[in-house]
Design a protein around this nucleic acid. Structure first.
Lengths: 340, 340
DNA sequence: TTGTATGCGTTATCAT
DNA sequence: ATGATAACGCATACAA
């Protein structure tokens, strides 16, 4: 605690800068002195004060991850992977959970100044950030899982995403191809512009329209990304008696809740109702029946998010935009509709 | 970003220390000057450099959470709650994910020096930390979800826990009371001393012994706290053909995997096999059938962890040890055994 | 190869 | 009520 670089220098019988050179592996130091200093460092359990270090160098090595919705199991694995990757590169890593109502960019701007970060990864959250906001961010950053609006110049940010609309479109088309015409849709804020739920909703709607199926607003329910919320939303849907034969949930957590509602109602999956989720979390596979889902390549996306960020930091490349393909996993929770 | 306290002072036409007083609400400042400074601060978007601040004050307000197993959904909610509580008190909060193999106390010792923390909460992980290690921690800390061994003086640390052994004992007794005699047990490292899995295993074993049932090592399987691992472990158990009628899983995630194995094998829950989980995560309720579980009061534990920590920090009280009761939730995945 | 001196942005002590 | 200045622990330019 109380031992600082000056103490180490004094005890080792060398100058301060020599100690500094040793612990930073910078500049020339004779092997003898180096060993001597290192021994003292070890003995006194000396750890450099990072505040002083950051204050001096102005350019820290801190990487921050701003997550909105840390309880989302799909994010959990990505977080783990991102942390692993950052640590692998020897950079300190800090996770910042962003409260659901707050603006993550504002929080980040603050954090950059406070901890002077050298890079940020954003995960989860909304899409409607203005270009001016982004420009206030003076360090490289990557939006993972967050598409931005068209108004923002792609040259000023990086992203690692899936095409939400396309994948939801794919999902809905799959259900339609199985003969379903009354397909329920469950997502968070499906009608609120620039949210993930909205993007997926637009994909859902586009598929319906292209296939000549009527869009019925009564088949769309707003819910949180959780089983309990999905359960309630699905129940509302079922109670409407709209001849529902399939439910497309914008997340696996919702899908699980919806499945429970269907099963609790005494209906069968997939004989009575088909269920299709989104994300590809482990739980969906171990649900019974296993749930079909649009599986995002989370680990790969985490990996390349860090990759893109470090490319940016080392100025090895400019801003990139990686779009991954999600995969439709068929496990049996969706079935060709029986004739009525 | 480049604007610092000196700039603000210059622009406001006051001295540096006046600015300092204003932004810290410390000392006397006339309302006129205060307003003037505040206006400039706002206009130039000035944010104090926390490195310099921490360097000077020596006593930062940083609170850290060290989590082992951030993907554990039981922890997810607790993390969210802890962060909320810490932020509510106006303290900066940082989450540190601890890799599975590494020593969380060592990591914390490092972090205390680096970020000079004023408090730590540990969540998850093992129990075998020496008293000397703990003593190297120079700031208040709370072990949440982590019981320590008897060798450590309770006066030097705080904890918020459940009685693992007792709750597992309760769980096993419940199954025994339903007539089960061949009860499988699934946990991580059940035979490795000072782990959570071991504590729960000991409770399982104690119940068996007290009820005069033979303990069969073949009914115990080692697995990770995940559905996939639980699935495999349960399958191994089923393949042994030991007349298994119930499975007690040391976590709900394991229980879900085990349930899937049972259902996949064409068996019924609870008619053929009863399943009992541990933790009380949301998913267990929405599984089909809903899984019985030993539910820990996670939110309350999170709440009081923060409470205890701040009591410690403000020296309002000494080290405390809170032991919560878990609740057995009966949802229908356990059933009285049928006569054979 | 090594040591000395300066400054990073802030807080706190002490004058004024 | 306010301003000058030392000190926090470290990195680095520069001197030796």
């Amino acid at each position: 605690m109380d031992v600082n670089i000056k103490d180490i220098a004094r005890i080792s019988g060398v100058g301060i800068s020599t100690v500094s050179r040793v612990i930073n592996n910078k500049g020339l130091v004779s092997k003898a002195t180096r060993d001597k200093v290192l021994r003292v460092v070890k003995e006194y359990n000396y750890i450099p004060n990072s505040n002083a270090r950051n204050l001096k160098t102005t350019q820290s090595k801190n990487i921050a991850l701003m997550v909105k919705g840390i309880t989302n199991p799909f994010f959990s694995n990505m977080i783990k992977e991102i942390e692993r990757q950052v640590n692998l590169r020897g950079y300190p890593f800090l996770i910042q959970q962003v409260e659901d109502g707050t603006d993550e960019i504002n929080a980040a701007i603050q954090l950059v100044k406070e901890k002077n970060l050298c890079g940020i990864i954003f995960m989860g959250g909304t899409y409607n950030h203005s270009e001016e906001k982004f420009k206030q961010l003076t360090v490289p950053f990557v939006l993972t899982t967050i598409t931005s609006t068209q108004e923002v110049d792609p040259a000023i940010f990086s992203s690692v995403i899936i095409n939400e609309l396309k994948e939801a479109y794919k999902a809905t088309n799959y259900l339609i191809s199985l003969g379903h015409t009354n397909i329920g849709f469950l997502a968070k804020s499906p009608l609120l512009d620039e949210t993930t739920g909205n993007r997926r909703f637009l994909g859902y709607k586009k598929a319906l329209e292209e296939q000549g199926l009527p869009y019925d607003a009564g088949l769309v329910e707003d819910c949180e990304y959780s089983p309990s919320s999905g359960f309630n939303a699905a129940r509302r849907l079922l109670n409407k008696n709209k001849g529902l034969t399939a439910i497309f949930a914008a997340s696996d957590t919702i899908a699980i809740g919806a499945a429970k509602a269907v099963l609790t109602a005494g209906l069968s999956i997939p004989d009575d109702i088909s269920i299709l989720g989104f994300d590809g979390i482990e739980m969906a596979e171990y649900y019974h029946p296993s749930l079909d889902t649009i599986s995002q390549p989370g680990t790969e996306m985490a990996l390349s998010s860090v990759g893109v960020l470090f490319d940016l930091i080392s100025e090895r490349s400019g801003n990139q935009h990686l779009v991954y393909d999600a995969v439709l996993l068929k496990r049996g929770s969706c079935k060709m509709i029986k004739a009525r």
